[in-house]
Amino acid sequence: MSKIKLTTVAFKGTAEQEAQLRQVLDEINSSEHPSVMTALQRAQAIYGYLPIEVQTIIAEEMGVSLEEVFGVATFYSQFTLNPQGSYAFGVCLGTACYVKGSGDVVAKLEECLGLKDGETSSDGKYSIASTRCVGCCGLAPVMTVNNEVYGKLTVKDIPDIVAKYQAM
């Protein structure tokens, strides 16, 4: 049915973040055309993702239903319902990487981490996100983990890379 990836990570929003969000929503509500999309963009900038706690505040403050907010949040690929993991695995699915087998790399990574593309482990440590071209096609297929770049990967390389982060 749905490719929507709901988060299993516990919400750790702070009072400061909430105050910031409410201020942003006040601004948006007093603008000429208050839009849910703008609210979601600003909220994601504050929290890094859009969990139910955040979307509920947006719905209440903007006087729309939670489903209307969720509908927008799941329509646009710019929005994410999951926080980035402490170790964020990004696999390039751009043309060059894909031709060189990055699809298999994602599959192996999913297997090793027990997560699907777009998900974050419930302890918040690992996440997988397929990305567009990261701009170093010469290294295809490419994977990034936070700021580390791994190039010219094969499926066989993945278990060792994963093990390295699991040991950290």
Binding site: S65, E67, V69, G71, S77
Partner: peptide, 26 residues
């Protein structure tokens, strides 16, 4: 649900072929 009843608990989630009518957070 929205216009007659102002309940609006169902809507379109997702996009493209994956679009489906459901509730917030599925």
């Amino acid at each position: 649900c929205k216009e007659y009843q102002s309940v609006a608990v169902i809507g379109a989630n997702g996009r493209g072929f994956d679009t489906h009518i459901a509730c917030a957070f599925e």
